[in-house]
Computed example of a mutant assay.
Amino acid sequence: MGGRRGVVGPFTLIWHDADIARHAWDFTLDHGGKLTYFEEALQLLESRGVAVILR
């Protein structure tokens, strides 16, 4: 990770108890997107070269 620059991949993130975050972030963002906040976060990580494993 790069501090101010945000996430710098490539690396693998193993997200334990991801179902808790999915439930807590089960809402859509105001910009009219159809993805939930959780799904948007996953997309952002993957676009930065992070392989995400949900557990």
Rank of each mutant, 00 (worst) to 15 (best):
G3M: 04
S47M: 14
L13D: 00
F27Q: 15
P10W: 04
L35T: 11
R55S: 13
K34C: 06
V50I: 09
R4N: 04
E46C: 06
F38D: 05
Q43L: 15
K34D: 12
V50Y: 03
A18R: 02
H16P: 05
L42G: 05
G9E: 06
V7Y: 08
A18I: 04
L45T: 03
L54R: 12
R22C: 06
R55A: 13
L29P: 11
I53F: 02
D17W: 11
R48E: 02
F11T: 01
A41H: 10
T28W: 02
E46P: 00
F27D: 11
A41Y: 09
R5M: 06
T28Q: 15
S47A: 12
D26C: 10
D17C: 05
K34E: 13
E39H: 06
D30G: 08
F27M: 14
A18C: 14
E46K: 15
A41M: 14
R5Q: 07
W15L: 12
D26N: 14
V8N: 12
A21R: 11
I53M: 02
F38Q: 05
L54G: 02
R4Q: 11
E39Y: 12
S47H: 07
I14E: 01
D30R: 13
R22M: 11
G3A: 14
L42Q: 10
D30W: 09
L13N: 00
L42V: 02
T12N: 00
L29W: 00
A41D: 01
E40Y: 14
L54I: 01
G2F: 01
W25M: 12
D30M: 03
R4G: 10
T12P: 00
G32Y: 09
R22Q: 15
G6W: 03
G3S: 09
E39M: 09
D17N: 14
E46H: 07
K34A: 12
G49E: 01
V50K: 08
L29H: 06
H16L: 04
L54A: 03
T36I: 08
T36S: 10
G33I: 05
L35W: 09
